[in-house]
Computed example of a mutant assay.
Amino acid sequence: MRTALAAAAEDVIIYDLDGIGRQYTDLCAELPGLAVRFAMKACPVGEVLDHLARLGSGFDAASPQEIVEALRTGVAPESIHYGNTVKSDRNIAEAYRMGVRDFATDSVEDVTAIAEHAPGSSVFCRIATTGHGALWGLSHKFGCSPEDALRVLVAARTSGLVPSGLSVHVGSQQMTAEAWGEAIRTLAALLETLNRHGIVPDRINLGGGLPALGALDRRGRPLEPPLDKMFAVIREGMERLRAVNAAPLGFLLEPGRHLVADHGAIRAHVARLTSRHRLDGNREDWLYLSCGKFNGLYEMDQLQYRLEFPNRPDGQFVNAVVAGPTCDSDDAYAQDGTVRVPRTITSGDPVWVHSCGAYAAAYATQGFNGFSPLPYRCVGGAAPESEGA
């Protein structure tokens, strides 16, 4: 990784395929018997998808175009889960045409559309969670109540679909093990209710939410999620859910950032270090980078990426707000936190932005303010180094 970064003359995202592969293997070892469906939205880079497919991963897709990309890796359609509860009739029909038969849902209206355009398919009803403890809660747009879930799955059975399972998502970058425990308690109670109504799911999708470890919080402190405890709660929860269901249960997981975030880095450069007084009279230093919210660092409103300045390892430092190059005021770290940067840094100095492998490529615009999306380079893995844009 460091060699590839040092050799890069221009800004570039580097993905470490070997690191991603190790993360996948470690996850499978921690949660044996659980099928992985990589959340493609976290890193829709062809070489990353290919590498995960070679290791045995399936995919969680949110659109027909993501299904196309998943199939391109050679995985079978049954290893692809259409995990987006927001789908048009056209989306459903296209996914069905490509062989996908697993659909997430959270409403009777969506079930009716799936029954019409993807007859006989399996549906997972997504249950809403509070999102407490996560950097991004995901608690409003997706998921229904347990009471609605019963109606949704009864409607699925009545319309000729297979009421195959339940799914949850405890929030992106979840920082507590209790979130998993709460979700599993909800799922267990709902399984008992469904069984009483003659609906016996055969799979549970535990969704995404597993955290990455390398970023910092908004004030620059290390994120320290209790990952080992999370795995223990999930393992215990899987056994509990198997015990309450009237038939054997399989389990799916849809990790995204957990697999890729800490194995991606951007080789950027300094635009300018400035100092100015605010209206309240206090002086404030700003470090402007060549990349920001709209070309690689979309999540800077909720976390800080670790920065490394290879040309200026020693000397005096200042605490600066970090911002991207555009003239959008949201293109900056949340201003309740600053970053320690070398006082002598100058325009053009290289900067390594670490732990940004999740969503760096996915959220990039097509050139907001004329700042182009970053190209990427993949290193390691079974294939030789490759480059893309």
Rank of each mutant, 00 (worst) to 15 (best):
Lys141Gln: 13
Asp349Met: 13
Val100Ala: 03
Ala389Leu: 04
Val36Ala: 02
Ile92Gln: 06
Phe317Pro: 00
Met175Ile: 11
Asp110Val: 14
Arg283Cys: 04
Met40Cys: 08
Asp18Trp: 03
Gly296Leu: 02
Ala35Leu: 12
Pro313Met: 09
Thr129Gly: 07
Ala115Ile: 06
Thr344Asn: 11
His140Ala: 09
Asn282Leu: 15
Leu34Lys: 01
Gly58Ala: 13
Glu78Ala: 13
Asp228Gln: 10
Met175Ser: 03
Trp286Glu: 15
Arg219Ala: 10
Ala113Arg: 14
Ala29His: 12
Ser347Cys: 11
Ala361Ser: 05
Glu236Trp: 11
Glu192Asp: 09
Asp89Lys: 07
Glu109Leu: 00
Tyr305Thr: 04
Ala188Cys: 12
Thr112Trp: 14
Gly208Ile: 03
Ile114Pro: 02
Ala215Leu: 11
Cys125Asn: 02
Ala104Gln: 07
Glu182Asn: 08
Arg196His: 12
Ser121Lys: 01
Ala42Ser: 14
Ala42Val: 01
Pro313Leu: 10
Phe38Lys: 00
Glu30His: 13
Arg157Val: 14
Cys356Arg: 06
Arg219Met: 15
Val351Trp: 02
Ala4Asp: 01
Glu30Phe: 08
Ile14Glu: 00
Arg97Lys: 12
Ala9Ser: 12
Ser145Tyr: 07
Val379Met: 00
Gly33Phe: 12
Val270Arg: 00
Asp262Gly: 03
Ala382Ile: 04
Gln335Lys: 07
Phe317His: 10
Arg218Cys: 14
Glu10Asn: 12
Arg196Ser: 13
Gln23Asn: 09
Ala323Glu: 10
Gly324Ala: 11
Leu206Pro: 02
Val108Thr: 07
Asp314Gln: 09
Tyr96Asn: 10
Asn245Tyr: 14
Lys229Tyr: 13
Asp106Lys: 03
Arg185Val: 15
Gly181His: 06
Thr365Glu: 11
Arg272His: 05
Gly46Met: 10
Asp148Leu: 14
Trp352Thr: 13
Val45Ser: 00
